[in-house]
Amino acid sequence: MLYSLDCEFNGFGGELISLALSGEAGELYLCRPQAELDGLDVHPWVEENVLPILDVAGARPDMMPLDQFGRAIQAFLAADKAPVVVADWPEDLIHLMQCLIISPGQMVRIPELAMKLVQVSAYPTDIAEAAQHNALWDARALRRAEALSRGEL
């Protein structure tokens, strides 16, 4: 199954704030709780453009500590025998991989996972209510843009 991935993070190279996977079989949207976000020195652009829309109509995140993201991803992908994750930015894939590491030398058990980096612009999108810079809406927009680029829509 194909899943589009998007992450929001604290500036380029910054800490992960939220992660979303959107696929035909379902969606996963994870966000760090406010207490963890309060501990970050948040980049001004992120403060203005990302934090206010973490929880918007059509995109309600599961709030959990960052160290629990890996287990949530594991549970989400458990039923899929061959998931393929598609991203349009390399750092999104890095953050996903880092979430799967749960301690030094240990990772969550997931099915065989393939990744694909695409050169597709998700915006502008014709998806009503889309909120750019919200991880779930961006994952949905990428899923749509990628399907359009393959001639599927």
Rank of each mutant, 00 (worst) to 15 (best):
A114P: 07
F76Q: 00
L5V: 07
I53D: 03
A79E: 12
H133C: 04
K81G: 13
I102H: 09
A79L: 07
A59W: 01
D6P: 10
G151V: 08
A145R: 02
L66F: 05
L28T: 01
Y123H: 14
D80Q: 11
L142A: 05
M64D: 03
H133R: 09
D38H: 10
L66W: 06
L19Y: 01
I94V: 15
G26Q: 05
V50W: 02
A147D: 12
Q74P: 03
V42S: 10
A59Q: 02
N10K: 09
K81Y: 10
L153D: 14
H95D: 01
R32M: 10
R71F: 11
L28W: 04
D126N: 14
L136R: 06
A78T: 06
P65T: 01
Y123K: 05
A131V: 14
D80N: 12
D80E: 12
V85Q: 02
S103A: 15
P111V: 01
W137C: 00
E48M: 13
G105K: 06
L93Q: 09
R150P: 04
L40T: 08
Y123G: 09
L93W: 06
V84C: 15
C99R: 00
L5A: 08
I101S: 09
E91G: 13
I102A: 03
Y3E: 04
D55T: 12
A79W: 04
A78H: 12
A72L: 03
S149T: 11
R143T: 12
A78W: 05
G151W: 12
D67A: 05
F69Y: 00
P61Y: 03
I102K: 09
V120T: 08
H133M: 04
P44D: 09
A145M: 07
Q34H: 09
Q34P: 06
G23Q: 02
N10M: 06
A135D: 03
E129N: 15
G105F: 06
A145S: 14
W89R: 13
D41T: 13
H43G: 05
G14H: 03
M107L: 10
M115I: 07
A75L: 08
I94W: 12
A122Y: 05
E36N: 10
L40F: 15
I101T: 11
V108N: 02
Q74S: 14
I127G: 09
A141I: 07
L40A: 11
L142R: 04
K81N: 13
A72D: 01
P83H: 02
V85C: 07
S22F: 15
L136V: 03
